[in-house]
Design a protein around this nucleic acid. Sequence first.
DNA 1: CCAAAAGTGTTAGGAGTACACCCATGG
DNA 2: CCATGGGTGTACTCCTAACACTTTTGG
Lengths: 208, 208
Amino acid sequence: MVRVTVDVLIFTLRERALHVLLVKRGIPPFLGRWAIPGGFVHERESLDEAALRELCEETGVSQVYLEQLYAFGAPKRDPRGRVITVAYMALIASDRLYLRAGTDAAEARWWPVSAPPPLAFDHADILGFAIDRLRGKLAHSTLGFQLLAPRFTLAELQTMHEAVLGRRLDKRNFRRRILETKLVKPLRQHRSDAGGRPARLYRFDRAT
Amino acid sequence: MVRVTVDVLIFTLRERALHVLLVKRGIPPFLGRWAIPGGFVHERESLDEAALRELCEETGVSQVYLEQLYAFGAPKRDPRGRVITVAYMALIASDRLYLRAGTDAAEARWWPVSAPPPLAFDHADILGFAIDRLRGKLAHSTLGFQLLAPRFTLAELQTMHEAVLGRRLDKRNFRRRILETKLVKPLRQHRSDAGGRPARLYRFDRAT
DNA sequence: CCAAAAGTGTTAGGAGTACACCCATGG
DNA sequence: CCATGGGTGTACTCCTAACACTTTTGG
């Protein structure tokens, strides 16, 4: 009989780079190898609910962006037997994150997607699939805002886009394009992190 | 324990309209209702292989375009118990089709996607998902050629696009755009179906 | 006053869209 | 010769991309 798991790719921004949460396996197979967090789907929960549960167990957060990616079902992807996995992608703003102590996993940490460690199972394929999907949807949807705090500067928004896409963007074109969409609403507040002119804060405005 | 099925949406063109193959259920639940053809995933086959197998059982064809769409896993989507289904989409040129006699299903026939019958389970959702995906990918990929015979006229190609998108397209713009892509190669042959000037034939040319 | 980051317009090229007439063939 | 479908070009709009200097603050 087939067993079904969900694996959840949890992305966040740290230090201007896109990171993914991985856990170190405490049991065979692939003991000590890094893996995408996940687990079996329970009898009375939907796939989406299972993914939310895994996400919450791992990070303690809820109310996040979550999207199903793809079902991976090669017969020998898990040496223990027939396991099909449905991969999900979650995006979390780093200000909402505190990694939960005492998880199932022996160890959990953030890895930059530009230089991940060797991964267990077919998880490298799954990670590649997720990054492609994330890049593809960034321009045509509002999912990117999920990686930012509720109030953000345009420089932060641009840095996020650059981190996801892995390339630099033109500041003036970026700002014009963003402001034309009416998806962000300027606030009266400003913020000055380092020395320099304080930046205006914006918030995401789904309505318009 | 969870069971896993694959459901395969098989699309083709008939009489200038996009059609989908549905089967009439011979057993409860939803006895007599129309449904997307599918079946359980076997122990030693991948999801893709299971979808190919179902497709071949239903239509007798192989070597077709097949793409995984989405995994549907609401706990009560099947009243008999926990069944997760992975939906696939297949595209077949009508010249390659002959519906296989003596399938599992009591009856199988083509339905126009613009006016499908009431469907079993959550299959109406799945059909809607598939059509959205097909429309979305038509412009940015070469999958549409799978719905045509190896040699086709530009009018046939345009009719196919119109059938999938559900709207009329401008002839001159369509032809210019297609020819600019270099994806089609003109042949020396022409064809005259009805009265009128014979149309030049083309073939899909993946190489360039 | 100097360093550091924020903020701001114009131009050129390419993509998409609207639109009307002549051509080749069969009957 | 006429009905039928095949085949062609131009102009306008909009989006994208390239590009450099001024402004505001903290130290």
